Amino acid sequence: MQTSLFPPTFTAVPEAPAATDYQRVAQAIRFLEENFRRQPSLDDVAAAVHLSPFHFQRLFSEWAGISPKRFVQYLTADFLKARLAEAGSLAEAAEAAGLSAPSRLHDLFVTLEAVTPQQYRTGGEGVRIGYGVHETPFGPALLAATERGICSLALLGAASPEAALTDLQKAWPRAALVNDAAQTAPLLGQAFATTPSRPLHLLVRGTNFQVKVWEALLRIPLGQLVSYQHIAQAIGQPKALQAVGSAVGANPVAYLIPCHRVIRKEGVLGEYRWGSTTKKAIIGWEMAQTELQAGQFA
């Protein structure tokens, strides 16, 4: 067994970055959630986030690339059910996106590796994990990485960095956790780059079943949605819906392992480890990017 050069530590959590435009966007999404029955106007939403209609429209369009009105249409049950109906199987969805083989997506953007059985049993003993808190298009996030790749990306939402770090320590109880934003900042830039310059490597600690589910999630193309049934069928376990749901919820790497693209078959977005508002924001933002890439400007 490898001797640890870094005894397990729990160093101070860095301060979260200052609030950005995304906080206003998230406030607007929450307001629309709570008041959707009365169909609030642009003026109503702008007032709820303490901006003029002009400034809110500009802020939202700069963040999403589309208007707030178009964005909200992406989150309606009818639209979401239509997207599910288009999905077919994961293999069909990947082929439609030009990814004819499951491994092709890994080659293009993300490679996923599981820890060794020994490291799993020992809770990551001998592994050094650097972490830092950084701003993303979806608010502040805590990113953690080993020398072999990103092992955690937690979108904080209303949670504290301390809570995210506690979760990280529970997942890797015997690893050495080191506050090292200089290590994680370049990885964060790659993770949210519009055009990734090279593949990102992920190192995950999970059961064989969980890793299998996470690999299936990586095959869901940008802008596509699938159901839990799709995932269960893709891994050859069509009756294991509850276990699939648990594995999806346990995904340790937000956004890069796109568990947000899994919704309930009724067109309901369902639960999300990092908050329902964040899930809505990511899904709407990704839908907008696919439209913009296709030249379908709203």
Rank of each mutant, 00 (worst) to 15 (best):
M1T: 14
Q2G: 11
F6E: 13
P7N: 08
F10T: 15
T11S: 15
A12Q: 14
V13F: 01
E15I: 13
A18C: 04
T20G: 13
D21L: 05
D21T: 09
Y22F: 15
Y22C: 05
R30N: 08
R30G: 10
F31Q: 04
E33C: 12
E34Y: 07
N35Y: 03
F36R: 15
R38W: 03
S41Y: 07
D44R: 07
A48W: 06
L51C: 06
S52I: 03
P53F: 00
P53V: 05
F54G: 07
F54D: 13
R58F: 10
R58S: 11
R58T: 13
F60T: 05
I66R: 04
P68W: 08
K69F: 07
R70G: 01
Y74F: 12
L75W: 06
D78C: 09
F79I: 09
K81C: 08
L84N: 01
E86I: 00
A91W: 00
E92Q: 06
E92F: 00
A96P: 00
A96V: 00
G98F: 03
S100T: 12
A101N: 12
L108S: 10
T111Y: 11
T111K: 13
A114M: 09
R121Y: 09
T122K: 09
G124S: 05
V133D: 04
H134W: 02
P137Q: 06
G139T: 09
G139S: 12
P140Y: 11
P140F: 13
P140W: 09
A141E: 02
T146P: 05
G149C: 08
S152P: 05
L155C: 03
L156E: 02
L156C: 01
G157M: 02
P161M: 11
E162A: 14
T166D: 14
W172G: 00
R174A: 15
A176P: 04
L177K: 06
L177F: 02
V178W: 11
V178L: 03
A182G: 10
A182T: 14
Q183D: 09
T184W: 06
A185R: 15
A185F: 12
P186L: 00
L187T: 06
L187E: 07
G189R: 13
A191E: 06
A193T: 09
A193S: 11
P199D: 07
L202M: 08
L202Q: 05
G206M: 08
T207R: 07
Q210G: 08
V211I: 14
L217V: 00
L222I: 13
Y228C: 08
Y228L: 07
H230W: 06
I231M: 07
A232M: 00
I235M: 02
Q237D: 07
K239R: 15
A240H: 05
L241Q: 07
L241I: 14
Q242G: 13
V244S: 01
S246T: 15
A247C: 09
G249N: 10
V253S: 01
I257Y: 06
H260F: 11
V262C: 01
I263N: 00
K265M: 08
E266K: 14
G267P: 05
E271R: 11
T277A: 07
T277I: 15
I283K: 00
W285H: 11
E286R: 02
Q293P: 05
Q293V: 10
Q293F: 08
A294T: 03
Q296V: 11
